[in-house]
Amino acid sequence: MSELLDKFQLYFQFPFVRYALVVGVLIALCSSLLGVTLVLKRFSFIGDGLSHVAFGAMAVAAVVGLTNDMLLVMPVTIICAVLLLKTGQNAKIKGDASVAMISVGALAIGYLLMNLFPTSSNISADVCATLFGSTSILTLTQFEVWLSVALSAVVVIIFILFYNRIFAVTFDENFANSTGIKANAYNLLIAAVIAVVIVLAMNLVGSLLISALIIFPALSAMCVFKNFKAVTICSVCISIFCATAGILFSIIVSTPVGPTIVVADIAMFAVFRVIGAINSKRNKI
């Protein structure tokens, strides 16, 4: 045990480990806040679609030679998020189909561009790092840390300020409209916030695993709690715990950071599923 503590003490001397924990906790907080809304709105897979859009935009930024790819990635992802949530209500192309279309389309275009116009000698490593996160959370700069703090603060403040309206829009848009809440405007707001969270989360787990960060904490909490507030709070706690445990475990045991966090989320889901089953049996008796 003391050996493990010594190791932690040693590792915490490195700024990048502290940065990873700060950013990891913030991303986990933001993604779990939105996860509940997205799962309830039947948009669980939007995270996957938008992360592929961000991957495609990153490829374009690299080909164009942008030094700060955020300038392109963020607006493109926000526009696609808005389009996806809008076309979700369109009868011609249903929500799941449009997410799938944009998801595979952006992934294919991104990979094609990276191959046609390679910006480094090791394309497979670049692709692997973007898709699976690799060690990107452990290679953050101080600027990226502060950017994550600022964007996370914006996400949390928006969630606090518009909590009641987001709640209303999440459960029944027609009812929300009839009570004077502009459901479309709040859908746009949710879309923009989702895009911000996804671009941030790409650093943590990579674009292929973002959905896990959004879905698992919310679903785990829903197994045990039945009201929106309790589910949201529980989801945040689960997400932060899994992200912290995943990051610490991966640096100690030298496993890939992203998949380790996702496995922690899966394990937590299994635990909450069992607790939920026991609770429902007790209630029946």
Binding site: P15, R18, V25, L29, I160
Partner: peptide, 24 residues
């Protein structure tokens, strides 16, 4: 609760970013 958590996160980030030296 959330505002307190945000303030704590900000302080934690400041602490994390303050010491730049890594020596093993």
């Amino acid at each position: 609760l959330i505002v307190t958590a945000l303030v704590l996160t900000f302080i934690f980030t400041l602490a994390a970013c303050s010491a730049e030296k890594s020596t093993v």
